[in-house]
Design a protein around this nucleic acid. Structure first.
Length: 575
DNA sequence: GCCGTTTTCGGCCCGACTGTTTTCAGTCG
């Protein structure tokens, strides 16, 4: 059984227990365990084999046994029993906005309704009026929630959500009396996938801000509107936007509260309790020493962290993945920043399927302040993307030499994105590869091969003395094609052993190597590389999406080869 | 169900908004 399934079963158990009205803390224990396991990925098996499951946060003796049972037998008796008690359609009903476990259970108990479709029919037929406590408004909301599920998505990419968020911020910024406006929530944490958009505004007149916000052209539907907090559904993408308004004096505590993940906030508040404090969006309060709560800090995030005896934790790390412990000990990494990026190496030119000439790309890179830019066109067997024959490649090498002579201030490197063939060999012979400044190797065929075969192919490519980078190591195309089967643990090790960098592909359609995978690669001492996979000049901007992932993956300048200065990089490329 | 420089039992983050209520439970983040 895969770790993902183990996590899914725990989170379903949590839902069943919630529907049954069990102890909410027990429910939370299952939810937390599910998240822990989800974060771990396939490392779960290693930890289980070492019999160290109970060292994981939120996993005690009981859940450890359940995990072992699932890994060993592929199922869980306790779960099978629970499942009999609750029809699976109730899980779907829980996805309806505003409809929680209590109401779902009530409707099921009274009317036997156990699917979204039958719920809709029952409302249309007026049957829900029989249930005490469910009147007209609630029914309207349920119907609206059902419609919303049909037209919206559960997740949005950072890229698409951020574009919508920028439009809202532009508008809200102009409201009278808005002093500050900041993006918060998962977008501020730069998560690759987000569920909604959270915005924080500072104003002395929150009601008027709420009025204008809920009446914006950009808004389709108003989910909730209060004096300090409102939620709307944006017309674009049907994504939910939450706006919270607070006074300037609580700006710091509001940002902390509105930025951290659920788990991070819980951990921070628990830490506060231990110190005799209370943290909420209005500040940190001393509740232990005197009868009256005393405000200790609220103005800036730094004040809050310093009061908690923590180093400042960058927004991207606020996930409860060990950053609080690290901040206590002064052990947080110095995360990479945009200014640390010296260049890009995964760029396609007109030679293959890119839009611009090498010279145009070089000039654009110079404008961006890069020290170098590498041009990596496809290799001969990738005919569909106009892969270069050896003859064409030689022509390209000559052109790069000429451009380097005439264009000062930027170094152009001549590379290739060569295919890893079915047997793991590279699509150009070594005699050709050695003429290039660097080699990116990638899988573009044989996606259906077994996990062992693909893993073997990539490891063989790593062993080639001219291969410097493995591009898009999982082959995923977001929403179009699943990742191929590959044993990433082994790839991290091979990359580390043979001095090959693994690509964080920055293209929004690819986004290979998530933050968590990046952390794993780093733990094996593998180097990472940010590649935009640009086919147009605008796409060079995708580097920022890669920086987001790197920061969330705790990467520093030393971990990312794009941060090497030209000489340093050249030396590294020589393996 | 987890967890312990106050605890091995008794806690477990905190507050806004809604709908249906006459003071609050349910839901959400």
């Amino acid at each position: 059984m895969q770790s993902k399934e183990v996590a899914k079963i725990f989170s379903e158990i949590a839902q069943i227990l919630e529907l049954k009205g069990e102890n909410p803390f027990r429910v939370r224990a299952y939810e937390r365990a599910a998240r822990t396991i989800e974060d771990l990925g396939e490392k779960l098996k290693v930890i289980a084999d070492q019999d160290k499951l109970t060292t994981l946060p939120g996993i005690g003796a009981d859940l450890a046994e359940k995990i072992k049972e699932m890994l060993k037998t592929g199922s869980l008796k306790y779960y099978q029993q629970l499942k009999k008690e609750i029809p699976s359609g109730l899980f779907d009903m829980l996805k309806i906005q505003g409809l929680g476990p209590k109401t779902v259970k009530l409707i099921y108990d009274k009317l036997g309704i156990d699917t979204i479709e039958s719920l809709k029919k029952a409302i249309d037929a007026g049957k829900l009026n029989q249930i005490e406590g469910i009147r007209e408004k609630t029914q309207e909301n349920i119907l609206r929630g059902i419609e919303f599920i049909k037209k919206s998505k559960e997740h949005f990419s950072f890229y698409e959500a951020n574009k919508v968020a920028e439009k809202f911020i532009e508008k809200i910024k102009k409201f009278k009396g808005v002093k500050k406006i900041e993006l918060a929530g998962s977008l501020r944490r730069k998560k690759s996938e987000v569920k909604d958009i959270d915005i924080l505004a500072i104003s002395k007149n929150p009601e008027s801000v709420m009025d204008k916000f809920t009446k914006l052209d950009l808004a389709d539907d108003v989910l909730a509107k209060g004096p300090t907090k409102s939620s709307i559904i944006a017309k674009e993408n049907n994504i939910q936007v939450d706006l919270r308004v607070l006074d300037e004096k609580s700006f710091g505590s509001a940002m902390v509260y509105f930025t951290g993940s659920k788990d991070f906030n819980v951990r921070l508040r628990q830490l506060a309790i231990k110190k005799g404090y209370k943290i909420n969006e209005y500040g940190v309060f001393d509740v232990a020493s005197s009868k009256k709560e005393k405000l200790l800090a609220a103005g800036t995030e730094r004040e809050i962290f310093s009061l908690m005896k923590l180093d400042y934790i960058p927004a991207e790390l606020r996930e409860d993945r060990g950053e609080i412990e690290a901040a206590k000990k002064g052990g947080l990494p110095k995360l990479i920043e945009k200014k640390d990026i010296k260049g890009d190496l995964h760029v396609h030119s007109k030679y293959s399927d890119g839009k611009e000439s090498i010279e145009e790309i070089a000039k654009a890179a110079k404008r961006r302040g890069y020290d170098y830019i590498g041009i990596s066109d496809h290799s001969q067997s990738l005919k569909i993307a106009s892969g270069l024959s050896i003859k064409e490649l030689h022509k390209k090498i000559e052109e790069v030499k000429k451009i380097n002579k005439k264009l000062p201030g930027i170094k152009v490197l001549c590379g290739t994105e060569a295919d890893i063939l079915m047997d793991g060999s590279i699509d150009y012979p070594d005699s050709v590869l050695k003429e290039l400044d660097y080699v990116i190797a990638a899988i573009h065929s044989g996606f259906k091969q077994s996990k062992e075969q693909i893993t073997k192919r990539i490891i063989k490519a790593c062993k080639n003395k001219y291969v410097n980078i493995i591009a898009h190591p999982t082959g995923i195309l977001q929403g179009i094609r699943d990742a191929y089967q590959v044993d990433l643990e082994k790839i991290y090790q091979a990359a580390s052993d043979f001095n090959v960098a693994l690509e964080i592909n920055c293209h929004p359609q690819r986004m290979d190597l998530s933050d968590l995978r990046v952390m794993e690669a780093k733990s094996k001492k593998a180097k990472l590389f940010l590649g935009t996979d640009s086919h147009t000049l605008e796409q060079l901007d995708f580097i920022e999406l890669g920086i987001n992932i790197s920061r969330r993956g705790w990467l520093t300048k030393k971990d990312v080869i794009n941060c090497f200065k030209t000489d340093e990089l050249k030396k590294w490329l020589k393996k």
